[in-house]
Computed example of a mutant assay.
Amino acid sequence: MNLQLRSQRLRSRRWLPLTAIAISAAVFSAACGSTAADDKTDTPTTNSSVTVTHARGEVTVPATPSRVVVLGSGDAQMASALGATVVAAVANPSSADKNWPGTQPPLNSDVMTLDSVKPNVETIAAARPDIILATTAQQSYVDLYDQLTNIAPTIIYPTAAFADSGEDLLRLIGKVLGKEDQANTLISAANKEVIDFATSNPSLKNSTYAFGQYAGGTLYLLAAKENPSTRFLTSLGLQLSPEVAQLAAGGTANGFVTLTPELFSSLGTADHILVSTPGDPEGTQFRAVPLVSELGDNLHVISTDLAGALLTANPSSVNYLIDQLQPALA
C-alpha cells in the first residue's frame, strides 16, 4: 500500500499529554526530594568553570551551580537523580504532587512553580538560578533561549529536540552540575537493569513495535530511529517496525509522523503496538476505528504517564519505564 503521509509539524500543545505528562503522575513514592528555594544555599562552590556545546553554541558555567531551574520533564528526572538543588521546575498538571513520573526522589511541590508549556521569564528570574536546564523543554521555552541566557547559563539539547540519547543528556547535565561521576553511576545502573530485563524476556529480541499517540482522529506515530524512545525500546531487544520506519522517508517532526485513519494499516506489522489516548484512558474511540479493531492483543493502550516518560527516556527513569512497560511486553 502506497502510504501518502501527511507530515505536519507537531504543535507543543498537541503533544502536551506526552511531554507534560498528563503524562504524569504514576510516580514512585520515595524519600523527600529537593527542598524549597528558601532552604538552599545561594553560593556556588568554587570549582573551575565548565564549557559545553549544545545546539545553540558554547555555554560556560562559571562554577558548580547551587541553584538549578529545570524546564523539561526529563530535566527534572535527571537533575533530581543527580541530587541537584532544584529551586524552580515545570510542574506536572496531572499529578497531585506536581512531579513527573520517574522523578526519583520526587521534588518538593513548592518548587514546581512553572507551567510546562507557557514560559514565565519573570518567575524564572525570581528563582535566581545559577543554571537553567532545558534539554527536554517544550519548544516554547527553547524559543526564549536568548532571554533565558540573560538570566543564567542555559543548557538545551546537543543536536535537536527529542533526538539525543538519554545517556548523552545525562552526561551533559552531569558535566555542567559537576556531577559526572554520579551521572556515570546512574548510566551503569540503568544499563544493568536493561540487560537484566532483556535477559529475563528473551522473546522480545527482534520483535517489532510501534509507539505513538491518538488524539482528535489523528495518530502521531514515532517513525525516526534517532530519539530517546526508540533507543530505549531497542535496548530492550525490540525493533521499530520496518513499515513504520519507512514512513520517516516522508519527513518527521520531532521524530513523529501524522497518520489519518485510512493509513492505520501500518500498525498491523508490529508485534507490540503502544498507543496513548489522552482523554480516553481505555482507548475506546481508537479501538473503534476499523483498521484498529483488527489489531487484537498486539494493541496496548498505555497511559499518557508512560508515553510521556518514553518520550524523554533517560537512565534516571529506566526503573519506572521497565516497571510500567512489563505488563504490555510480557
Rank of each mutant, 00 (worst) to 15 (best):
27 V>Q: 11
214 Y>I: 01
236 L>W: 04
184 N>Q: 13
320 Y>W: 08
294 E>R: 15
96 A>H: 03
196 D>Q: 15
82 L>G: 07
39 D>F: 11
43 T>F: 03
31 A>S: 15
101 P>I: 00
159 T>R: 15
136 T>R: 11
95 S>W: 00
170 L>Y: 11
134 A>S: 02
14 R>K: 09
205 K>G: 00
45 T>Q: 10
5 L>M: 09
59 V>W: 03
204 L>N: 10
313 A>P: 06
51 T>F: 02
9 R>Q: 11
165 S>N: 10
212 G>L: 03
278 P>C: 06
135 T>N: 06
197 F>M: 02
110 D>C: 14
194 V>P: 05
32 C>W: 09
282 E>T: 03
264 F>K: 09
173 I>T: 12
254 N>K: 10
52 V>E: 11
276 S>A: 13
283 G>V: 01
202 P>T: 01
172 L>R: 12
32 C>N: 15
150 N>S: 12
116 S>T: 04
47 N>E: 13
217 G>S: 08
248 A>R: 12
52 V>Y: 09
275 V>R: 04
133 L>Q: 07
134 A>P: 06
164 D>A: 03
313 A>K: 09
114 L>Y: 05
224 A>I: 01
144 L>K: 15
270 A>D: 08
270 A>M: 03
112 M>E: 09
10 L>P: 04
307 A>P: 12
118 K>I: 01
205 K>A: 01
87 V>G: 06
149 T>V: 07
110 D>F: 04
143 D>Y: 12
66 S>H: 12
105 P>E: 02
186 L>Q: 10
278 P>I: 04
215 A>M: 05
28 F>W: 09
110 D>V: 05
53 T>Y: 08
147 Q>I: 03
186 L>Y: 04
134 A>C: 02
103 T>F: 01
27 V>L: 02
170 L>E: 14
144 L>E: 14
14 R>C: 00
43 T>R: 15
304 T>V: 10
87 V>W: 04
327 P>G: 06
200 S>G: 14
167 E>C: 00
259 L>F: 05
306 L>P: 05
254 N>V: 00
305 D>W: 04
146 D>N: 15
57 G>N: 08
120 N>G: 05
12 S>G: 13
196 D>W: 07
305 D>E: 15
81 A>H: 06
33 G>P: 06
7 S>V: 08
172 L>M: 07
19 T>A: 10
103 T>Q: 06
6 R>E: 13
226 E>P: 05
81 A>S: 10
2 N>I: 01
303 S>N: 11
189 A>D: 10
160 A>Q: 11
51 T>S: 11
173 I>G: 07
183 A>K: 10
320 Y>V: 02
216 G>M: 11
155 I>P: 09
184 N>L: 01
195 I>A: 14
71 L>H: 09
202 P>G: 01
136 T>Y: 14
10 L>N: 14
69 V>I: 03
58 E>P: 04
213 Q>R: 15
200 S>K: 14
47 N>Q: 14
316 S>D: 08
328 A>E: 05
124 I>N: 05
270 A>Y: 07
150 N>V: 04
126 A>W: 02
72 G>A: 07
245 A>F: 00
108 N>D: 14
248 A>D: 06
187 I>W: 08
248 A>F: 02
31 A>Y: 14
93 P>N: 08
141 Y>K: 09
50 V>M: 13
237 G>S: 10
288 A>C: 03
